[in-house]
């Protein structure tokens, strides 16, 4: 199975870390993975995106022109990436940050109100995990256990206490689609 994914939003929304956790989960399952950030002077408030590829076969290019899935967290990213989802592909977006919803009919569009739900659950800092949960419900390319192991690997030890909350957020995200 192969998934070519773009995750895009504002810096500080956890775009890069969502991608990193997904890539790590793939690594744990022995898959081939690449994680390619659009790096730059971007900081909190600027735009940020990352291309993640998870594949059973070796990966050719870490840079792509079209994607199987786009996870979109803000309006500028919607404008940039809606057109780059492959026909039949998946677009997941957070309703909070989007003023003009996507219009394409040849792709599967899912609105997930992750930010609103996160605010209600007091999990606002990990609303990205809700979106990751929604994604994994639609495309179970890695197991939840692998995601939890990946969190252990990527989070500094002092934050390991937050892993149960992350798990809760992922499960909530799975319910939302």
């Amino acid at each position: 199975m192969k998934q070519e994914i773009i995750i895009a939003g504002f810096g500080g929304q956890g775009v890069l870390s969502m991608g990193k956790i997904l890539a790590y989960s793939g690594l744990i399952e022995g898959k081939e993975v690449t994680w390619m950030p659009a790096y730059g002077p971007e900081q909190r408030g600027g735009t940020a995106n990352v291309t993640v590829i998870v594949n059973d076969e070796p990966i050719s290019s870490p840079i792509l022109s079209t994607y199987d899935t786009a996870i979109i967290l803000n309006q500028p990213s919607m404008e940039k990436f809606e057109s780059k989802v492959k026909p039949g592909g998946t677009l997941i977006y957070d309703g909070y940050g989007i003023s003009v919803p996507p219009t394409r009919k040849d792709i599967n569009v899912y609105r997930v109100d992750a930010m609103d739900v996160a605010a209600k659950m007091n999990l606002i800092k990990i609303f990205n995990m809700i979106l990751l949960g929604s994604y994994l419900k639609l495309h179970p390319i890695v197991k939840i256990e692998s995601v939890l192991s990946a969190l252990k690997k990527t989070l500094p030890e002092r934050h390991h206490g937050l892993i149960p909350q992350n798990e809760e957020a992922i499960k909530k995200g799975m319910e939302l689609v």
Partner: peptide, 10 residues
């Protein structure tokens, strides 16, 4: 270059 330098891979 920045692609290989910044990219994460196995």
């Amino acid at each position: 270059d920045g692609v290989i330098g910044q990219m994460m891979e196995k």
